[in-house]
Design a protein around this nucleic acid. Structure first.
Lengths: 130, 130
DNA sequence: ATATTTGCAAATAATTTGCACGTAA
DNA sequence: TTACGTGCAAATTATTTGCAAATAT
């Protein structure tokens, strides 16, 4: 066979729980800290390997934070959208934006630029933090 | 006095020359490689320290590439704009976009989101590479 | 039974720092 | 002369990997 298997393990469930509980971008170290606090015996390397796998499966989105540290959030990029990230609480809201898609297309005319994709992030304070 | 001085040195000029010659995002290692090739005796730490200073002065823009590695380009964010990055040659075109600013503002109504800023990047192939 | 996952400790890779010496002003 | 910059080597930090033991199927 050429297919990969996929076991359901305690460490993986623990990691998924952390990600589900906090819908915002977390670094491997932050996830590891939460696991340790809650008594789950999961190593940092397992955190890395699991995040890698989740990213490959498209279940998690990766993003480099301001310091270049990799952060992850449970979020399928299945239907394309963008993020509004609260600088105060870190909360992330999805922004579905046809407008940007259209704007992106105009690039082709203005710059002769053949588009593959684009990334858009908004920074500020969410409704709850204002 | 509380002000900082700023000396014009051979290493700094060499680094500036590299950045001027290549208007695209380069990593510290790439810049260092070019300096070595051209015989300029400049250390990697100086490359890092100089890029840091240039960023602080707002003369250089920093960006984490796909692997999270820090890359730098001569580009003043004075008047806000965005980048169209060619995946083939790495060329970067500035995209001045009032449209996005307006769209960003609509976020406030739609999500109750108080905006600090935003970042937008386009990926694809530039006119020359098509 | 056996393919897959795990923890640990050691290996990498990027970036930063301490410090004695060099250089612009 | 003196504040500022540099190179070097060592320190830090994030991330990856090898491998023997543990676990899911």
């Amino acid at each position: 066979m050429t297919t990969r298997a996929d076991y359901v393990t305690r460490p993986r469930e623990a990691i998924a729980t952390v990600l589900r509980r906090e819908p915002r971008f977390l670094s491997a170290a932050q996830i590891y800290a939460r696991l340790k606090r809650s008594g789950a015996g999961v190593s940092l390397s397992t955190v890395y390997r699991t995040l890698d796998r989740l990213r490959a499966k498209g279940e998690v989105t990766e993003r480099a934070d301001a310091d270049g540290e990799a952060t992850f959030m449970l979020c399928e990029p299945a239907h394309h959208h963008h993020h509004a990230i609260c600088g105060e609480c870190g909360r992330v809201e999805d922004v579905d934006c046809t407008a940007v898609e259209q704007f992106a297309e105009s690039l082709r005319a203005a710059h002769g630029f053949e588009l593959d994709g684009h990334a858009l992030e908004f920074f500020g304070r969410c409704g709850a933090c204002r």
